[in-house]
């Protein structure tokens, strides 16, 4: 289990990195390496070149502003998780990140890398979609912002071009009157989820005005389902859009069952969360 040979570049400017990517069709970005290096070691991926972005300046930020949280491409999961400000602005970040692998992996793996890796079993791509966030992308061709809804193309496949670097992810903050919750069931503590469900709920007074659920590991792309009109049976509605599958750890029926167990729970929890925040907003 050793990687096949590749050329290696450790640029110190973004321009240099982008030029290298543009010049080499088979090049890949190396961020935390917590997904890429296992693939290299098993020779399931054999890029001709790695462009190591770890020496690029100014990409390690976890910046919190009025509108939400901006996470730089070199911010490690652990750094995002450790930011109390980020957790305050968008509580779902911490709720989900604490389920991403074990702390040692989070010390190295980046949140942006996880999003670009586009694993339907990973928490953060789903979180970005549920929150309707976006990713800022750069290439020699210029910069663009890709909304989460347009980011995921298929299993382990994002819509980024091979020459593009995601420089930052944007997670919108949680509006007053909105609430979130997350739960997952994994075989072992720290494993990828058998099923994970997050909820994002918006309320006005006692009324739920919008409710959406995000799902991990029950379809082959990160999936979000609007259940505003199905508050009594969120799972039933969601399952019409999900594609639970059999694998060695769980049957499709069991996964569907877990959706039925978790969806109402997280929906209720997010609703409570929304109401408690609305309460706080009124009585600070």
């Amino acid at each position: 289990m050793k990687p096949a040979p590749f050329a290696y570049l450790r640029p110190s400017t973004l321009e240099e990195a982008l030029a290298a990517l543009a010049g080499e069709q088979g090049a890949k970005v190396l961020a935390g390496g917590q997904s890429l290096v296992p693939l290299l070691n098993m020779r399931l991926a054999a890029p001709s070149m790695l462009v190591d972005i770890n020496a690029l300046p100014d990409l390690g930020h976890v910046r919190v502003a009025e509108d939400g949280v901006r996470v730089g491409a070199l911010a490690r999961h652990a750094e995002v998780l450790a930011s109390a400000e980020a957790a305050h602005a968008q509580p779902l970040l911490g709720m989900a990140l604490s389920h991403v692998a074990h702390p040692t992996i989070r010390n190295r793996g980046t949140t942006v890398g996880s999003i670009v890796h586009a694993d339907a079993a990973a928490e953060m791509p789903m979180v970005l979609r549920l929150l309707e966030g976006s990713v800022d992308v750069a290439s020699v061709r210029g910069r663009r912002t890709v909304p989460a809804a347009e980011l995921f193309a298929g299993p382990l496949e994002s819509t980024l071009g091979h020459d593009e670097i995601a420089v930052q992810a944007f997670f919108p903050g949680l509006a007053p009157g909105a609430g979130v919750a997350f739960q997952e069931i994994a075989r072992r503590h720290g494993d990828y989820a058998l099923v994970g469900v997050a909820a994002h709920v918006e309320t006005e007074g006692d009324a739920v005005t919008r409710a959406r659920l995000g799902f991990v590991s029950v379809s082959d792309v990160p999936t979000v389902v609007d259940v505003t009109d199905a508050l009594d049976d969120p799972a039933g509605t969601a399952l019409t859009e999900l594609e639970p599958a059999d694998d060695i750890h769980a049957t499709a029926a069991y996964r569907a069952h877990l959706v039925r167990v978790l969806a109402p729970r997280v929906l209720a929890a997010a609703t409570d969360h929304a109401r408690s925040r609305a309460g706080e907003a009124i009585h600070p």
Binding site: I185, R187, L194, H249, A250, T251, A253, Y254, H257
Partner: peptide
Amino acid sequence: ISPSELFE
């Protein structure tokens, strides 16, 4: 036996 099997 796994949870999935117990469920089944």
